[in-house]
Amino acid sequence: MTSHARRRNVVGALLAGTVALSMTACGGSGSSDADANTMTVSYSQVVADQLPLWIADESGLFTAQGLKVTLTNLSGSDGFPALVSGQTQLASIGGSEMVSGAASGGEVNYLATLTPVFPYELFAKVTDPQELKGKRIGVTSTSGSLYVATLEALKQIGLSPSDVQLTPLGSVTNVNNALVAGTIDAALSHPPATTQIEAAGYHSLVDLAKDKIPASNVGIAATTDYVNGHGDQIRRFLAAVQQAITREKSDEAYSTSVLSKHLNVTDPAALHETWQYYAQEALPDVPTPTVAQLQTSVTELAPSVPAVKSLDVAKIVNTSFVTPAG
Rank of each mutant, 00 (worst) to 15 (best):
P303E: 12
T18W: 09
P287G: 05
L283S: 12
D163V: 02
L169S: 02
L154Y: 02
L166V: 10
A153F: 08
L51R: 04
G201M: 11
R235F: 05
I93P: 04
E152F: 00
S75V: 04
P268Y: 02
R136Y: 01
A292P: 04
V317M: 02
K315Y: 01
Q293Y: 10
T140H: 05
L166N: 09
A221C: 15
V317A: 04
N176D: 15
E273K: 14
K125M: 13
A325C: 03
P168H: 09
V84Q: 11
G170A: 09
L111I: 07
E107C: 13
A244H: 12
P119K: 14
T183C: 01
V206Q: 08
G66R: 11
P303V: 07
V241L: 13
A56Y: 12
S77D: 09
A244Y: 12
H262G: 00
A253K: 13
P306W: 09
V227D: 11
L271E: 02
M23E: 06
G28A: 12
S143V: 15
Q156N: 15
T38W: 00
N73Y: 01
L294H: 06
R235H: 14
Y202P: 02
P119L: 12
S104E: 13
G138F: 05
H230F: 13
S171T: 15
A112N: 08
G101Q: 09
V265K: 06
N37K: 15
A64T: 10
L205C: 11
T115V: 15
V148L: 02
E152M: 09
A48V: 04
T113M: 11
N228I: 05
L67P: 08
Q295L: 06
S92H: 15
P324W: 00
D49H: 10
P289Q: 04
G106P: 07
A102L: 10
V10K: 03
V164P: 08
R7T: 06
G66Q: 10
A209N: 10
E121L: 00
Q196C: 09
P306T: 02
F80M: 15
D285G: 06
V172F: 15
G201L: 08
S304I: 12
Q130W: 05
D211L: 15
L146F: 02
I213C: 05
Q276G: 00
E58T: 04
S3R: 14
L61Y: 10
A282D: 10
D78E: 01
P161D: 06
D128H: 00
K315Q: 11
L21D: 03
L301F: 09
S42R: 07
Y254K: 11
F237P: 13
T63G: 00
V108P: 01
K212M: 07
R6Q: 14
D128C: 06
L311W: 08
A222N: 10
T63H: 06
N264M: 06
S141Q: 11
H262L: 05
S250H: 01
T127I: 03
T194V: 11
V317Y: 10
T2V: 02
G94H: 12
T223D: 05
S104Y: 12
S257P: 03
A215W: 03
T266I: 09
G12S: 03
S100L: 14
T70C: 07
Q156S: 15
A187F: 00
G28V: 00
